[in-house]
Design a protein around this nucleic acid. Structure first.
Lengths: 142, 142
DNA sequence: GTTTATGCAAATGGTTTGCACTCGA
DNA sequence: TCGAGTGCAAACCATTTGCATAAAC
């Protein structure tokens, strides 16, 4: 899908005191147009037109994550996936098909009681991760 | 803590058609005496008395996981941790302290509705992962 | 003209693999 | 004895790091 806020990338980089380079703009564009979280490999593939170095890509992803422009997520595949952080992309969880690896967003989050329980146990700054895997309809039918 | 079913290790290996070697027995013993999931490194450290090879240890952990004698869990540290599977250790989730890395078991699991929702969406053989992190009381106080 | 970002090459860390040898059943 | 299990060395794969160059501001 196309986004109308492509031009915001420049602004976002500026706000974070980051220089606007071709790679950075390309990565932001790719992630904002993706409909599911992408691995570094997948981003690389979509970067065909842009010349870049793998180390630089990882540095970019790390910087963006630290500046909260993107989020890294782990679905147990042994690599990180990255998602753009924008107003329309708030906190959520995923399910990944164990066969075709298709990823969907899941429309629920953990009950408040969980966090309350842990707070009661003295934990501070609690974060959680939750994800699902299963065989999707398509794969199951075939 | 000491367990009275140490002698079951031999039996468990037998049941799975696995040969009873010193390393395997030692790993089962270590994991059954551990009070939180151990990484391959931590298991290695506890194996001081037994001579072993790192590759063999990983092969052992893989075999045990496949035979469901142990479970591998990922708490986002970049390595797997392993827990013994026995009658007294059923499905559960963890919280890890983001500072001291102490791991505790959390006494709740996801609501049934989550799985039901996904089943309704056509997913089969659904599994989930859920874990927490936060600063534990001890670390917070210091 | 600085500071920050990049490319290159090499290192890291957890884990896996190929192969010949060894040991448990 | 015979196949499963092991040690060793080397490979793997995602990611990181050091350093000198290049580009952004």
């Amino acid at each position: 899908m196309k986004h109308s806020h492509d031009h915001n990338f420049l602004e976002q980089l500026d706000n974070q005191g980051l220089k606007k380079t071709e790679l950075r703009l390309a990565v932001l564009k790719i992630l904002s147009e993706a409909n599911s979280p992408l691995s570094a490999d997948e981003i690389s593939q979509k970067l065909k037109k842009v010349s870049f170095d793998r180390a630089t890509l990882f540095r970019t992803l790390k910087t963006f994550t630290e500046k909260h422009l993107i989020s890294g997520i782990d679905l147990g595949e042994g690599c990180q996936r990255y998602e753009i952080n924008c107003v329309t992309h708030h906190h959520h969880h995923h399910i990944i098909c164990s066969q075709c690896k298709k990823i969907e967003i899941v429309p629920f989050c953990i009950p408040n009681e969980f966090k309350e329980f842990l707070t009661g146990r003295g934990y501070q700054e609690i974060t959680h991760r939750m994800d699902f895997s299963g065989i999707c309809v398509k794969c199951y039918k075939s």
